[in-house]
């Protein structure tokens, strides 16, 4: 029997596999397909204070082994989430994490504060890295100082553990990770999507209504894994790795690169059973390797 549990310090997960924000709705959507309590954790869709309309369609475009989206964080807002969804999620034995968004620092803090007054959440994931909400894909996670200020502000507004989700659209992701750590974030998750463009040649128009979008899926896995590797060597807080994880090998590779836990995103669309299958695959692999505690492999890259 392999011990799959992950101790992030502020939070203990039954296994290292979480469903990533934006790909798993509010959790309920996948309930008909499997028992959500199998998951290590689930991160719900990004929440602003008010309901949000999102970007004009088309919002999705495929590229080889990848998906470009410009959804723009359409969502029900934090009040409706706490009233209609959270009571149901609170009954799960898996760690439920809310993804916190804001137009400006104050909104991030208000959303975090509102969420902390409701039972059922294990942590907050601070979404300072969505490329689809500001002109040209800009986000606070592209600047260490803006990251520091936003994290600090949320840190003061909520006592829930804080995970800061980082953007890959930067020159040096470690500088941003260190700023998040310095401001009191208890973990970082990386990476969000890569800013991308898809063109329809016939019409010479962008394939996405919002022109630019964020690339996810297997196409970004090596890039994401490199960033996880870089960040894990610099920060003291746990790193949660994501970006193109489609099978248990991908998940384990991220852990070897330095991730204490992982998130599975786009794979949920391609194979709705991806998360439980990855968990099972990890367990079988560890057993075949004679590994007693899976956490042993975190950061075990030999080089």
């Amino acid at each position: 029997m392999v011990d799959l549990s992950v101790d992030l310090g502020f939070l203990k997960l039954k296994n290292p596999v979480m469903a990533a924000s934006g790909t798993f709705g509010y959790g309920l959507e996948f309930q008909p397909l499997y028992n959500l309590n199998l998951l290590g954790g689930l991160v719900v869709k990004g929440l602003y204070f008010k309901p949000r309309e999102g970007n004009p369609p088309p919002r999705l475009a495929e590229s080889p082994c990848g998906l470009i989206n410009s959804i723009g964080l359409q969502g029900i807002g934090v009040e409706a989430f706490c009233r209609e969804i959270l009571p149901w999620l609170a009954d799960l034995t898996t760690a439920v994490i809310a993804n916190v968004c804001g137009e400006e620092e104050g909104e991030y803090a208000r959303v975090a504060e509102y969420l902390s007054r409701h039972p059922g959440l294990a942590a907050l994931e601070l979404n300072i890295s969505c490329p689809n909400v500001r002109e040209g894909g800009k986000c606070p996670a592209q600047d260490p100082e803006a990251t520091y200020r936003t994290v600090k502000r949320v840190r003061q507004a909520s006592s829930l553990p804080l995970i800061t989700k980082l953007s890959p659209n930067v020159t040096d992701i470690t500088a941003v990770a260190l700023a998040a750590q310095e401001a009191g974030s208890q973990a970082v998750s990386l990476v969000n999507t890569f800013l991308a463009l898809a063109i329809d040649l016939e019409s010479r128009k962008p394939k996405l209504g919002n022109v630019l979008g964020g690339l996810s899926g297997p196409a970004i896995k090596p890039l994401a894994m490199r960033m996880v590797f870089e960040v894990a060597r610099k920060v003291k807080i746990p790193v949660i790795g994501l970006g193109g994880i489609f099978n248990y090998q991908d998940a384990l590779e991220f852990m070897v690169a330095g991730a204490s836990a992982v998130q599975v995103g786009t794979a949920n669309f391609v194979n709705p059973q991806a998360c439980p299958e990855i968990i099972k695959g990890i367990e079988d692999w560890a057993e075949s390797q004679g590994i007693k505690r899976l956490s042993e492999i975190v950061g075990s890259l030999k080089f």
């Binding site: 790909t23 709705g25 919002r59």
Partner: peptide, 12 residues
């Protein structure tokens, strides 16, 4: 469509 399950809001 992304998911077909109502989870991604890609087909709005």
């Amino acid at each position: 469509m992304g998911c077909g399950l109502g989870a991604c809001w890609g087909c709005s």
